[in-house]
């Protein structure tokens, strides 16, 4: 993907976690986090901080380093500790422009809720499932959000913000053994609290859920093609573009009450 030369000195932080290979269960570079690093490297090669909270000895971190990173900053945490607070404090202190994460965890709690909780703690906007950051100008980023079936939504987001990176983003570059083994693990001791909630959880491999039987309604090839490619039309909802802001806000408010989000 060709990026415009982004003139500003952007400060980008890519959060990385320990992935897990679906077939072997072996620790590895997580797919989406790898993409977050790739995007970070393309946006701000020199001003990219790759950040991990956890065990600095973890070998999977080396496979991120193999993408050509000189160092990885590691907030040293106990395996039972909650990573969100130390990460939030770190980001608060360093004040980056963009924080990139994956969408879904491959092991433990790594991604999943982290971007949401960080955004909440920092009070920054969160952009979920981005495919690319096209440009950053005057403190506003042009972001492409990935939608189902290859569709993209162009958004303008004011810096700073947190974004989770979708599988539609550019694939992580190859990890090379030499740089991987030479990269510096830049340790930082942090205070952390034990994650009591997680201690009570039980972890089990995900099971495939039974699939609903597919009833083919399409009669012709054209219909099947349409079914496979057309944008899924959600029922209900409406697009409000030209109405006054108060009316738009009221509609959102009504919906939240209707859905039981606000009581």
């Amino acid at each position: 993907m060709q990026h415009k030369q982004i003139s500003q000195n952007l400060n980008v932080v890519s959060l990385i976690s320990v992935g897990k290979h679906p077939q072997s269960g072996r620790e590895r570079r997580a797919e989406q986090d790898g993409r977050a690093v790739e995007l970070g490297m393309n946006l701000a090669s020199d001003n990219l901080t790759v950040l991990h909270a956890g065990d600095p000895q973890q070998q999977a971190l080396r496979s991120y380093a193999g993408m050509g990173l000189k160092s990885i900053r590691v907030l040293q945490l106990d395996s039972a500790a909650d990573a969100v607070a130390p990460l939030g404090n770190y980001l608060q202190q360093h004040g980056p422009d963009i924080v990139l994460t994956g969408i879904r965890a491959e092991s433990g709690e790594s991604s999943g809720m982290v971007p949401y909780q960080l955004a909440e703690q920092l009070g920054w906007p969160l952009v979920p499932r981005i495919a690319d950051i096209v440009d950053v100008k005057d403190g506003v980023a042009e972001v492409l959000q990935a939608l189902p079936r290859g569709q993209r939504r162009a958004l303008k987001v004011r810096l700073p913000f947190v974004a989770s990176v979708d599988n539609a983003a550019q694939e992580a570059r190859q990890s090379a053994y030499g740089p991987a083994s030479r990269a510096l693990m830049d340790l930082q001791a942090v205070e952390s609290a034990t994650d009591d909630v997680r201690a009570a959880w039980e972890e089990a491999p995900a099971r495939k859920r039974p699939k609903r039987l597919k009833v083919v309604k399409a009669k012709t090839a054209a219909e099947r093609f349409k079914a496979a490619t057309a944008k899924s039309q959600g029922d209900g909802g409406k697009v409000m573009k030209n109405e006054p802001a108060a009316e738009q806000a009221q509609a959102i408010f009504d919906l939240l009450i209707e859905e039981g989000v606000l009581r």
């Binding site: 990890s175 090379a176 740089p179």
Partner: peptide, 19 residues
């Protein structure tokens, strides 16, 4: 050093390492 194995190279090497 370069992490520049063409085409399916990177994928195959990743697989070999992971599986």
């Amino acid at each position: 050093e370069k992490g520049n194995t063409p085409n399916k190279g990177a994928e195959v090497l990743d697989n070999i390492i992971a599986t």
